[in-house]
């Protein structure tokens, strides 16, 4: 008995987690996929009607705005957060005093809910109260910063807040990368009189390629999932100028009573994530078998 237990216990204790994730994630995704093929409105219906929901989705100007926003927001957010994160990491790597404290401060935005810190951002971005009012108070009467209420620019305020939230986190990833670069190579390069910026661009940054990849994956999936950020800052407005796929889906499911649309939009989001994550997982698995 005890020998049998010792052989099988490892598998048995793993099973609950495994099954929980399997059912919770894939079971319910399967349900969503099914419903996305029906004519469900306020209540789910289960007779399959083909791709009508997807046709409606792609014909919807609101969904169009949401997808456009996702690409603008995603591209800007990922690039800016990575550049800032790298610069912050290089700065912190210059033998700073009280480094531990500073790292924590940089990471705080990531540890706090955007729903909560959104209050401060609303104030900062509010034309009558925040940056605009402050700069005008300094004597620049014509200064204008009304992005948050301007349909053409509101999406950039989401980028701003998202970058604020994540760049400390990206910094921490890059800092770990910088610390793992072989010090001998750098010393050799310094002895050869190679200027510091060349050491960074030619030796250090190329050797951190895997970190760039993981940072990209993390930021990309954060961008696609972004929900509370929009809810906290603009609520999708003005109009639906800052709708993202997640808020579109939310609006369809809970205020429009259109489950079919909600399900089909969720499936498209899912496909976008899969398109990014699957190649990454594949490369991770292959790297493992090669090594």
């Amino acid at each position: 008995m005890s020998e049998w237990l010792e052989n099988h216990l490892p598998k048995m204790v793993l099973a609950p987690s495994f099954i929980a994730v399997l059912v919770f994630v894939y079971g319910f995704i399967g349900w969503t996929a099914w419903v996305s093929l029906t004519r469900s409105k306020l209540l789910p219906r289960y007779e399959i009607h083909g791709f009508i929901q997807y046709d409606r989705l792609f014909a919807s100007p609101r969904w169009d705005t949401a997808m456009n926003n996702l690409f603008i927001f995603g591209a800007l957010f990922i690039v800016i957060a990575m550049v800032l994160g790298l610069l912050l990491a290089i700065m912190l790597d210059q033998k700073i005093r009280t480094e531990g404290v500073i790292r924590t401060i940089y990471l705080y935005p990531m540890a706090l809910s955007m729903i909560v810190t959104g209050t401060a951002w609303k104030w900062i971005l509010n034309p009558g109260l925040g940056i605009e009012a402050t700069v005008r108070g300094w004597g620049f009467e014509n200064f204008s910063f009304d992005w948050v209420v301007n349909p053409d620019f509101a999406i950039y305020t989401i980028v701003l807040a998202a970058v604020w939230q994540s760049s400390g986190f990206v910094m921490a990833l890059f800092l770990a990368g910088l610390r793992s670069v072989d010090g001998e190579i750098i010393k050799a390069a310094q002895v050869d009189g190679i200027p510091t910026w060349r050491i960074y661009t030619a030796i250090i940054i190329p050797s951190m390629a895997p970190i760039f990849l993981s940072a990209f994956i993390v930021l990309a999936h954060l961008a696609i999932k972004s929900f509370d950020l929009v809810i906290a800052l603009t609520g999708g407005g003005p109009g639906y100028a800052t709708d993202l796929p997640a808020t579109y889906m939310y609006a369809m499911a809970f205020s429009r009573g259109d489950i079919g649309q909600a399900a089909s939009s969720a499936m498209i989001m899912m496909l976008v994530v899969f398109a990014i994550v699957v190649p990454y997982l594949y490369s991770e698995l292959r790297a493992k078998t090669d090594g």
């Binding site: 919770f24 994630v25 319910f28 995704i29 349900w31 969503t32 419903v35 789910p44 994956i217 999936h221 696609i224 999932k225 929900f227 796929p245 997640a246 889906m249 939310y250 499911a253 489950i259 909600a262 399900a263 939009s265 969720a266 499936m267 989001m269 899912m270 994530v273 994550v277």
Partner: peptide, 9 residues
């Protein structure tokens, strides 16, 4: 990494 909206409803 999958968006939670897929399992929300």
């Amino acid at each position: 990494m999958l968006p939670a909206v897929g399992v929300l409803y």
